[in-house]
Design a protein around this nucleic acid. Structure first.
Lengths: 224, 224
DNA sequence: AATTTTATTTAGCTTTATCTAAATTTATTT
DNA sequence: AAATAAATTTAGATAAAGCTAAATAAAATT
């Protein structure tokens, strides 16, 4: 049924991610994202248009069709389920899972993915806190905000970390911040935009602006 | 380190299997095995020779070099570990695992495979009873014989089934024969070469020549 | 030993996914 | 509104992996 080449799948996924932010995606943008040349992008855009995955008029940028979005969500589902498997079952660290999942995601077998999903207990989010689409491609969108935008004294749960380097992982582990950690901001310092953060009843500590910008949280329902 | 295309890997694996029986592998043989044309085989043989995976002189047939064998065993290791995973963890049936593993085996990441091995508890054989090479490519060779060659009244353990169709699986399940089942032959019928088989103390039953030819067993150490 | 058959290889073409360099369109400045 | 700059597309090449048809080598027969 669903049968696209690895290359096509990578383009589809990249367009999906870029259009979340920009709406319309441009040739140069996509070329940069995929470490390829604009000419190669144009070629592929023609192919994907023929396959009706893409709305594309020359020089006008592009975005996925309904069908294209569906395909993208299936690929993202595969990717995130494998990431979860690698972290949870094979004990890969957070920063290692992405690269391996980049390869596993292209194994296209619906039964495999659905059985994997079941085996893993139908997880809702991957190890980075990104939501995993279900078998129908439905994805939970939780209202996440950047930690820098969380109002003082409102608790929130860490739901996502955008940077995926081992450096940030090391720092977060040291500060004992994980996905699911509930925290609140006690003070914001104007001088360097660092934040005074508290987890539960533990003593508060400081984190840099740089780190805070990479942490996304879901504010608690009872925001006063 | 190890980085071959999916196509190259499929050729290497096929040559490895064919040379187990024939010693020297021929162009037509390999073409038939891979559902491809002899001309395509010749092309690939030249490539693999340049990469020093193959001993090959035009018109003389070919076999893998030391290095080629090593690569083949790594691919077979991946394949059989994934098969084990699919059967054991995802509850795929016996006849379904091969096809899916054909794709997963090409994801080349040493750490992934070694962690998978560990997660699975370092299994020695795949769901068909074929031995799984260890991380160094070492493979256990047990002296297997065809059930038709097992002497009367000697017990043996079912270690391999060569056919992998769902039809044979259905039949074996019905007769309650699995990998690891210990059985013995009580009688051989000349007329149709059917066999009277007994499992433990249960009443004996008959299996056809056709079925027996696809069952391989390891004779028990204490063969009198 | 010559001929026929079979197996293998070579030559040339196709498709997919790249690329570079040139051409063209759109956007930005003056 | 030209002119320049930037973005995009087209044209033409390349490499991988396959194919068909023709050529050649090896094996089998007469």
């Amino acid at each position: 049924m669903l049968n696209y080449s690895t290359s096509e799948e990578n383009y589809i996924k990249a367009i999906f991610h870029l259009q979340q932010q920009d709406g319309m995606v441009t040739t140069n943008e996509l070329a940069a994202e995929l470490n390829t040349k604009p000419a190669s992008v144009t070629d592929m855009m023609k192919k994907l248009k023929v396959k009706k995955l893409l709305n594309y008029q020359p020089y006008q940028g592009f975005r996925l069709t309904q069908e294209g979005n569906k395909v993208a969500l299936i690929i993202i589902r595969r990717h995130r389920l494998w990431e979860f498997f690698l972290a949870e079952k094979l004990k890969f660290t957070w920063d290692e899972v992405h690269e391996v999942a980049e390869h596993l995601e292209h194994v296209s077998n619906e039964k495999l993915i659905n059985k994997l999903d079941e085996f893993l207990g139908f997880p809702r989010v991957d190890p980075h806190g990104d939501p995993i689409p279900d078998a129908n491609g439905k994805i939970e969108i939780s209202k996440k905000i950047c930690l820098t935008d969380l109002p003082l004294n409102n608790t929130a749960v860490v739901s996502n970390v955008s940077d995926q380097s081992s450096e940030i992982l090391e720092l977060l582990e040291h500060k004992n911040i994980n996905l699911g950690t509930r925290l609140e901001i006690k003070k914001k310092f104007e001088f360097d935009n660092s934040l005074e953060v508290r987890i539960g009843r533990q003593p508060a500590f400081t984190i840099s602006r740089q780190l805070a910008e990479n942490i996304f949280v879901t504010p608690s329902a009872s925001s006063k």
